[in-house]
């Protein structure tokens, strides 16, 4: 089971590991694309990562800033999708 904090930490570690940016330069509200921390390949990697780690598939309509602009945004998006999947399965 992943709570919001755990999701945040996993996403944060993934972004630090793949961007080679020092951890102290990436806060949970840092705009990872606007500030050039992640590029287009990084974006596809994040989509793959959340699919592999949380079994979350993002649809075309969900590929928006509100869901991906920062670690916070990604974590909240993943948590919402997990909750939705849990609701549908119960």
């Amino acid at each position: 089971m992943n709570n919001l904090h755990q999701v945040q930490e996993k996403v944060r570690q993934f972004i630090i590991n793949t961007s080679y940016i020092p951890a102290e330069q990436v806060q949970n509200d840092t705009l990872i694309f606007a500030q050039g921390i992640m590029d287009s390949m990084g974006f596809i990697s994040i989509i793959d990562f959340i699919e592999d780690s949380f079994s979350i598939s993002a649809t075309d309509n969900e590929l928006i800033e509100a869901n991906f602009e920062s670690i916070d945004a990604i974590a909240q998006f993943v948590s919402r999708k997990i909750q939705l999947a849990n609701c549908l399965s119960t």
Binding site: F33, M38, D39, F43, I44, D60, L63, I64
Partner: peptide
């Protein structure tokens, strides 16, 4: 993806 053009996010293929 066309949806990527008008956002701050990079495009995805």
């Amino acid at each position: 993806n066309h949806s990527g053009l008008s956002q701050f996010l990079p495009p995805v293929f």
